[in-house]
Amino acid sequence: MTGEERVTATGKRIGRVAREYATQQAREAANGKPEAPAAPRSPVPAGARSAALPPRGTPIIEVEDIGKSYGRVIALREVTTSVKAGEVTCVLGDNGAGKSTFIKILAGAHQHTEGRFVVDGEERHLSNPRDALALGIATVYQDLAVVPLMPVWRNFFLGSEPVKGIWPARRMDIEFMKQTTRKELLAMGIDLRDVDQPIGTLSGGERQCVAIARAVYFGARVLILDEPTAALGVKQSGVVLRYIAKARERGLGVVFITHNPHHAYPVGDRFMLLRRGRSMGDFPKSGLSLADLTSMMAGGAELESLAHELERSMGASSDVVEELMADVEGEKR
């Protein structure tokens, strides 16, 4: 069993859930059931967004001292943070810091081996991505899962196409698909000229945003974004950041994974730093400046603790310690 095959199976299951929902959705529309503009839609029978988004600031996901080991290898340990409705939790860390292990736990692709994983106040053990999706936790991976040659609207509903009519005349509800795509993208602040254009003609940032809008439409309450700005230029990154802010405004909880503090700081409400599989702390924005964040990313905290350690053993007046302290201060500025 390779990892790829596992993804295949779970991908199929996710699709099935979403498809069933889409069919039901289309049927309701066909029955002329009036659709309130604010009516939340959910692909999830358990009723993720149908229970409406919780009020701003309500914790949706809380993790406490969560950890993951593969046999003897400890990939992640003692990580504590929370994701609240209407807030952006940034997960920062360098390559190999454990970011992907952490999001795979949140996304249900891996199970945690230590600590508590609480969703809506209830402790959970997610066994696959479908479980996560059923709780309204959707992940947008870096490759975005779009088909470049297909029009935007076909991509938006791919795998979950709403249908109408009775077999053999059952067909996609194209009008509904096009309108919804346009409407949902507009709600995310993406104003497309033409939803009929192949998605490959969109810029990288726009494609990212379509993937985000798709996850939101299909019932996400928590969006996990895996390095959405990593492959983008400065301007495109700005576009994506604006959509992250937009998702927050809509009341979603967002987990934003990045290694760039300059991307994280403007949109983040809470910052969790990872280093070598350990959490370096979980800070609300009020307790942290961009300089703090940057210096922590650059190893400032380690430097600081080293300085304090030396201070204890060598005395504050030591030249070495004084120099180190100056360095730490300098990094913070």
Binding site: V7, T8, G11, K12, R13, I14, G15, R16, A18, R19, Y141, D143, L144, A145, V146, V147, P148, L149, M150, R154, F157, L158, G159, S160, E161, M172
Partner: peptide, 17 residues
């Protein structure tokens, strides 16, 4: 829709179900 998708990007189509 699926026919276009599996020919255009099989892995991506799999990811969305």
């Amino acid at each position: 829709n699926w026919i276009f998708a599996v020919g255009g990007a099989a892995h991506s189509s799999r990811q969305v179900g």
